[in-house]
Design a binder for these strands. Structure first.
Lengths: 228, 228
DNA sequence: TATTTGTAGATTGTTAACAATCTTACTGTT
DNA sequence: AACAGTAAGATTGTTAACAATCTACAAATA
């Protein structure tokens, strides 16, 4: 048979996977604020799905730290805390430094172009004042690195953190109604990522993350003290 | 009321959690070799549980990379590969170096004593020629570090890798019927971990992991070529 | 005989009813 | 009024039956 350029189709559409997507989206968007109690019967009715697939979806989101579950008691949208943010940012720093160490000598044209393209998308979204897109594109920029370094375990770990990070960005944006954290000074990031000084890049990541942490930490402290 | 030093009790005993434990145990022990097809009806009958909780348990184990699942097709005990081992060991190196960087200035008496105790347990298990225990205690030794550095996200990530690592150790042991990887030369590990040269410790971790990787990689290559 | 096509059985996905557990509000007692 | 006990309602955990999908084998065709 003539070998068409056909890839085997991904057959992983199931109610569970759809529910995971929708719930994740709702949490990340802030439609379901942290602490919200998720009642299975209500949710399943809302989604038009029975409780079986819903419960399986919940298990997956618990593993992504987006939902907390207490047996026989209830499941809640994960709460935020200064410590959790601290951990997320310090961990991210290590992950991304590792990613760059892995990719450094393998940075091909495709990688460089995709990184440039992604920065354009981000810049454009910021100029258009489209906050939601800006957050997404910011995450996509970092995603390019993880995607290209060819380390599945690392990428998987990054994906697990990504949702939580997205949530923080959204909350920050909603709280201040201005551009989320880290939406500027990405030019230097790109410059170093395409340059030839690995150590400078690694140091920049530490600073980059530190800045992001400061912004997010600050507003979470505010929220927490307001809530009391 | 007199404030007793009581922690809120963990109430998380459910069929799902029991199934997770049992399945994990069976995979890690090698009772369910890599590639084994897991048929839900058979498993549920075997465990005396209906398919609902079983399926939820499977979701959790998929997230720990111990099971692979293809919708409408089947779930299988995760296969092993040289690349997966490579990734696991390189990632472990980063995680454990991060852990030591975190804990270094906070190493208290409790930490030091627990580390010493754990090494004793490991040494004792090796002397008794109790392979199964030796593997467990080896993992417990590293676990002490993650437990004490007070970084939940890091510990969580370690726990997710631990099962997979345990599986490799078991397979190695079964293949060669001799002591698993890394069961010697832990004295130096302890010495450095209690010493005051962080860089030496970090370097040692790299070597330590490299040795472990070499042993595991070698025998997996053998297995793979024999299977063909 | 080799290839294709159809069909039956097996297996996973989904649902809805049932059981166990928890929460809350009410009642009675001191 | 404060507290313990209790019962009703709500919610999660579990089960078993039903539907959708896939796989493997056999019949049909060349």
């Amino acid at each position: 048979m003539t070998p068409f350029n056909l890839k085997p189709i991904r057959k992983e559409r199931t109610l569970r996977s759809d529910v995971v997507e929708q719930l994740k989206e709702a949490i990340i968007n802030g439609d379901l604020p942290p602490g919200t109690k998720l009642v299975e019967s209500q949710l399943s009715a809302l989604l038009g799905v029975s409780r079986g697939p819903l419960r399986e979806a919940i298990r997956q989101l618990v593993d992504q730290n987006l939902i907390e579950s207490i047996p026989y008691t209830g499941t809640y949208v994960a709460n935020i805390s200064v410590k959790a943010i601290q951990e997320l940012y310090s961990f991210r720093t290590e992950l991304e430094q590792f990613a760059f160490k892995l990719i450094w000598d393998k940075r091909d044209k495709a990688f460089q172009e995709e990184l440039k393209l992604q920065l354009k998308k981000l810049t454009s979204a910021i100029k258009d004042n489209d906050r939601e897109s800006a957050i997404f594109e910011e995450l996509e920029l970092h995603n390019v690195v993880y995607k290209h370094c060819g380390h599945e375990l690392l990428e998987q770990t990054w994906q697990r953190l990504r949702g939580r990070l997205h949530l923080y960005f959204t909350l920050h944006q909603k709280a201040h109604n201005r551009a989320g954290p880290l939406l500027d000074a990405h030019d230097r990031y790109l410059e170093l990522a395409l340059g030839d000084d690995l150590n400078a890049m690694l140091e920049h990541i530490t600073e980059h993350m530190q800045q992001g942490y400061n912004k997010v930490e600050q507003f979470v402290s505010e929220i927490k003290s307001n809530t009391l």
